[in-house]
């Protein structure tokens, strides 16, 4: 990521992996990320926020992107340095426009059980975007 290249590469943790099991792989990712965040001095609030955002992003990729098709996988990328944590989660779906997701906090939607994942990712991360065609989620957390 060109915007993150201000620190020496050897200080950054970079990982690409393919997630195939929607139940067993996410906890493993979380464990690895937590340990890297700790070693890059991210605080507890940061770890909590990132854990929640990753949980939502990866679950969305398996559930809505891949529609729980066990033959489909999710690509995961992360780069953690002393100031930023960047994550990308890419599914095998056709992509979607996050602007079409109704606001779950509107009174008429408050009792609808879905649609809160993206909202939470946006609340806890500094940047959240879906790269064209909308099946690659990119999230950035800046150390406070």
């Amino acid at each position: 990521m060109s915007d993150m290249s201000d620190l020496p590469e050897e200080k950054a943790f970079v990982q690409r992996r393919v997630l195939r099991d929607s139940e067993k792989d996410p906890p493993q990712v979380q464990q690895d990320i937590e340990s890297q965040l700790k070693s890059h001095d991210f605080d507890k609030d940061a770890m909590w926020a990132i854990r929640l955002a990753l949980e939502e992003g990866i679950a969305n990729a398996f559930t809505h992107g891949n529609k729980r098709d066990p033959k489909k996988s999710v690509e995961f990328y992360c780069r953690i340095d002393n100031t930023h944590a960047v994550f990308e989660v890419c599914d095998e779906g056709a992509g979607f426009d996050p602007g079409t997701v109704p606001d779950p906090t509107d009174e008429e939607n408050i009792e609808i059980p879905s649609g809160r994942g993206i909202m939470l990712m946006r609340a806890y991360m500094d940047e959240v975007s879906y790269l064209t065609p909308g099946n690659r989620l990119r999230m950035v957390y800046r150390k406070k």
């Binding site: 929640l52 949980e55 679950a59 009792e111 059980p113 994942g117």
Partner: peptide, 12 residues
């Protein structure tokens, strides 16, 4: 920890 899917279940 609680995910948005858990919130959905609570709403149901």
């Amino acid at each position: 920890h609680l995910s948005s899917a858990a919130l959905g279940t609570l709403i149901t």
